[in-house]
Computed example of a mutant assay.
Amino acid sequence: MIPITEQPSLYDQLENKSVEELTRYINQEDAKVAKTIEGVLPSVNNLITAIVDKLNAGGRLFYLGAGSGGRLSVLDVIELPTTYGLPKGIFNVVLAGGIDRLADALEEKEDDRSEGWNALMDAGITPADIVVGISASGTTPFVLEGLKKCKSLNITTGCIVSNPSTPIAAQSDYPVEVVTGPEFITGSTRMKCGTAQKMLFDMISTTVMIRIGRVEGNNMVNVKLINVKILDRGVRMLMKKAEIESYDEAKTILLTHGSVKAAMENMMKKHN
């Protein structure tokens, strides 16, 4: 049986379609993604809870991926130290071909059966951590063999796949199967599968950051003050939270302590 991700597109003769038709059809397909994710939220919630539990106990998350999904996980993870002040090394990615070759799209590396596990070993993987495989097909050897090794050593596993009942899901304690159907271009899983993966990475990382205390109210109180825009946002955030009327005073306090959270904690200590 042909995997759903490889089944023929619902559309044909695309070269004969107008720009208006093509964009309308692509948008119709994209509209299916959020609804599909809604149907698997219980599985997503279980995976997020497992990640939070591991991180709260001092463990780490590793995304293990290849292709478009693996590259999208890199883009998500590199944002977290700046956006949430998360120490590097808590959220990690093991990418087929290596993160340093991200732009080279070394698709052939997804067939390597040992590189993923070797990279996890180099990172000192232990049962305190959790490894989440990323594979649209659910069969990628790089991901599958890495998860098999993890399972054999009682390392908690999860996955995000786009076909039902896959070998990778079978090796996962917390599988998330987001079956978005045939792609607009047959087999082009950078499209709906990639959109679903991006949405899930956003959902996972944001929810985890909130649950481990990197967000207060609806604010990024640990954001790194790396540019003028973020500094201004931080100053205004501190002015509101600490009821400081002077912009310059709030800016001085913020720059002294490096983050809104640290500034608030220091001010509370002085007040008490």
Rank of each mutant, 00 (worst) to 15 (best):
L75Q: 15
V77L: 01
V77F: 01
V77K: 11
E79D: 15
E79M: 08
E79T: 10
E79F: 02
P81I: 12
P81L: 10
T82M: 13
T83K: 13
Y84A: 12
Y84I: 04
Y84R: 10
Y84D: 04
Y84K: 07
G85V: 09
P87N: 14
P87M: 05
K88M: 10
K88I: 12
K88S: 11
G89N: 14
F91P: 08
F91D: 06
F91L: 09
N92A: 00
N92G: 10
V93S: 01
V93P: 08
V93D: 04
V93T: 12
V94K: 06
V94N: 05
V94W: 03
A96E: 03
G98H: 12
I99D: 04
I99A: 11
D100C: 00
D100M: 08
D104Y: 07
D104M: 04
A105F: 10
A105E: 14
L106Q: 15
L106R: 12
E108I: 09
E108V: 14
K109I: 00
K109F: 01
E110W: 00
E110Y: 00
S114F: 09
E115C: 02
G116Q: 04
G116L: 03
W117Y: 14
N118F: 03
N118I: 12
L120A: 11
L120R: 13
L120M: 00
L120Q: 05
M121P: 00
M121I: 15
M121D: 03
A123P: 03
A123C: 14
A123V: 04
I125G: 09
T126P: 12
T126K: 09
P127D: 14
A128M: 07
A128D: 13
D129F: 02
I130S: 08
I130R: 09
V131E: 01
V131T: 11
V131C: 02
V131M: 04
V131I: 12
V132C: 02
V132T: 11
G133T: 11
G133D: 02
G133H: 03
G133Q: 04
I134A: 01
I134Q: 06
S135T: 14
S135R: 06
S137C: 14
S137V: 11
T139M: 08
T140Q: 10
P141Y: 12
V143S: 14
V143M: 06
E145V: 07
E145M: 13
K148I: 14
C150M: 09
K151Q: 10
S152D: 15
L153C: 13
N154I: 06
I155A: 09
I155W: 00
T156E: 10
G158A: 00
V161E: 00
N163H: 01
N163Y: 00
N163A: 01
P164G: 02
P167C: 02
I168K: 06
I168M: 03
A169M: 00
A169V: 09
A170Q: 15
Q171Y: 02
D173M: 06
Y174I: 09
P175M: 03
V176F: 06
V176M: 05
E177H: 13
V179G: 08
G181W: 03
G181M: 04
E183C: 08
E183N: 01
E183Y: 07
F184V: 13
T186R: 10
G187E: 11
S188Q: 10
S188H: 08
T189K: 06
T189A: 03
R190W: 05
R190A: 10
M191I: 13
M191S: 05
M191C: 05
K192M: 09
C193E: 09
